[in-house]
Nucleic acid binder design. Sequence first.
DNA 1: CTCTCGATGCGCT
DNA 2: GCGCATCGAGAGA
Length: 222
Amino acid sequence: MRSKAHILDRDFYERPTLEVARELLGQRLVRVLEGQRLSGLIVEVEAYIGEEDKASHAAVGRTPRNEVMYGPAGHAYVYLIYGVHHCLNAVTEAEGFPAAVLIRAIEPREGIEVMRAHRPGRPDDQLTNGPAKLCQALAIDLSLNGADLCTGEVLFIEVANARRGLGTSDSLGGCPASVREEGEHVADDVVIATPRIGVRGDELAKSRPWRFCMQGNRYVSQ
DNA sequence: CTCTCGATGCGCT
DNA sequence: GCGCATCGAGAGA
């Protein structure tokens, strides 16, 4: 049996966003759909921090759309982009300060058959290798905007070793053997920090190395 | 393989 | 009206 002790709690999210983003790598994103667990290991994230971050939705100040980013840490901020796609963030830092971590890619672990059904015709390494793709694979939409990630119900993040024994043979696929043991802290030497993908903002926003991904992992977005 | 472009809803000016 | 923290189809090489 799994215990809620494995679920990342509010204290985890209520910290500096760059720390949270970095530490989310290797953790397990879990979506419970019709009683079934769909999950994957987080392999790519981006941090969006405060109103001064011109790439953030909060750069325009508090609005109905970005309201959740201003709320308490540990909630899901889900938004619709280009009228078609959804993206998932985890809200961080203190209530009143708008910040979040965008989950950009995961490596499927549980319920891959359901993910394939949600993304027909796609090879397995393209089921969840992008922020909108993973939302489609896990059936995450606006109905989950504001959902509490700390209650362990429909959407949450677990420490990656919460299911020891699940099979680690292709864990964190494509990464050096030294970090392939699921549940170990992801070592700094396999994490790459780069500028964020597809952001507008100003030059500072475009240049900040606030994207973190697993070096060489085949589920990272292109 | 690379590049271009359309989809499609809505928040914000 | 404008433009977006994206994706996938289609064209060309």
